[in-house]
Design a protein around this nucleic acid. Structure first.
Length: 270
DNA sequence: ACCGGAGCCTGTTAGC
DNA sequence: TGCTAACAGGCTCCGG
């Protein structure tokens, strides 16, 4: 489940291997991944060099020399790597960008939920996406504005990418734990103090996640195949039945709107 | 305008 | 032990 820290880690590890490479062809054996006609993608990326790689929300963005932007979303099981073209493709690779150097940017995706897109302008593509939680523009006031319009429970609101960008199930649970807020509290009922705590907690867990190079709980790994370390530092996520590291209470799990939610019933009372 | 739920996938795990 | 069913979860679409 790549979330902001996992995508950011992918960008950082990939960058030195991919910037300066030139795309000469695209291979694909599962068309739904590519959100446009495959021949059009091939045409628009042909002989384009990759000038930069960056991230917005959970999307990876490859800037091309013609000014266009290749956008990849890893969704549940996506993984990007740069390998020699003569190495056999893993069976879950469904899209590959053939590079002039003979290498390939390979998109492995067991669950096939991932997407590849290309746009001329970034802004329209991200028009519905909420603020970047690690940008200097993201303040407790911005978080308050994002949440004031919704009576949904805070756990669900945090997963809504139009409210705040980049948070998924792991970091939502972790942030709510550090902010000592019940996942079931209505988002628009958070006090000013709670908004400040939640803002701080969101940044804390995302920064820690990036520092640990992501959480390899299931199949997430860095582009070079090595694992992140964040799974060793989670406070509540998938720690059901284990003692809370703060108060010793037993961590509970509850299904909220179809998402498993982990929390400490003592620390996260209100 | 907003919300909840189904659907998309397949490897792993739980349960009979 | 061997099978099936449930589960995992980000995002889009659809209906209320």
């Amino acid at each position: 489940m790549p979330e902001l820290p996992e995508v950011e880690t992918t960008v950082r590890v990939l960058r030195p291997y991919i910037v300066g490479e030139t795309i000469i062809d695209v291979w694909n054996d599962y068309p739904p991944t590519v959100r446009l006609d495959i021949d059009e993608l091939r045409y628009r990326t042909h002989q384009q060099s990759i000038t930069a790689v960056h991230r917005r929300a959970k999307y990876l963005i490859f800037d091309l020399s013609n000014g266009e932007h290749l956008i990849v979303h890893l969704r549940m099981s996506g993984h990007l790597s740069v390998l020699d073209g003569d190495e056999p493709r893993h069976k879950h690779v469904h899209t590959a960008f053939l590079l002039a150097s003979g290498k390939e940017l390979r998109f492995r995706d067991m669950r096939k939920f991932g997407t590849v897109d290309i746009v001329q302008e970034l802004e329209p593509f991200f028009v519905k996406i909420g603020p970047e939680p690690l940008s200097s523009n993201f303040t407790p006031e911005v978080l308050k504005d994002s949440l004031k319009g919704t009576a949904r429970i805070i756990k669900t609101a945090l997963l809504d990418q139009t409210k705040v960008a980049g948070i998924g199930n792991i970091y939502a649970d972790e942030a709510l734990f550090y902010a000592k807020i019940s996942p079931e509290k209505p988002a628009n009922q958070l006090s000013k103090e709670e908004l400040i705590l939640l803002h701080e907690a969101i940044q804390k867990v995302l920064i820690l996640g990036i520092a640990r190079e992501g959480a390899s709980l299931d199949i997430y790994a860095k582009p070079d195949g090595t694992r992140g370390e964040m799974q060793n530092e989670v406070a509540v996520f998938r720690r059901t039945g284990q003692p809370c590291r703060s108060c010793g209470s037993t961590i509970e799990r509850k299904r909220l709107h179809g998402r498993s939610t982990h929390f400490c019933p003592t620390c996260q009372r209100s």
